[in-house]
């Protein structure tokens, strides 16, 4: 499955809505979306994961990239992650740098 992204920026919150799998074949798509969102200097980056069924270590590296690109002061939120995806994030300790929320705006 390919990965599609849609980005909206409102009140200095950039929301990237993902549809598909985040794996080694598709992670560059997310990196590009993060780089584009960073141009607006957001204070908060929300990744809407409701339509993401799979996230591998390539997706975790995107989160590292986001953290480095946006800087420490920017909150990164993972919203609507499926339980398996959330478990992968927690297993690797990424819940220490990103906030996991049940839903966008939740």
């Amino acid at each position: 499955m390919t990965l599609d992204t849609r980005t909206t920026v409102r009140a200095r919150t950039a929301t990237i809505t993902l549809t598909g799998d985040v794996d080694a074949a598709s992670a560059s798509v997310l990196d590009e979306a993060i780089a584009a969102a960073a141009v607006s200097s957001p204070r908060r980056l929300v990744l809407d994961l409701n339509a993401v069924d799979y996230l591998s270590s390539a997706g975790l590296r995107c989160l590292v990239f986001a953290h480095q690109r946006l800087g420490r002061g920017v909150e990164i939120v993972l919203a609507g992650a499926h339980p398996d995806v959330a478990e992968t994030v927690r297993l690797a300790g990424f819940d220490r740098v990103a906030t996991i929320e049940d839903q966008v705006g939740g």
Binding site: L60, V64, H67, T88, L91, G93, R96, V97
Partner: peptide, 20 residues
């Protein structure tokens, strides 16, 4: 290395996840 913090390293997550 992963325990040092998720932003401290760029690699190794794949093996880390596979093993677990």
């Amino acid at each position: 290395r992963v325990a040092a913090g998720p932003t401290a390293v760029l690699g190794g997550y794949g093996l880390f996840l596979a093993l677990r």
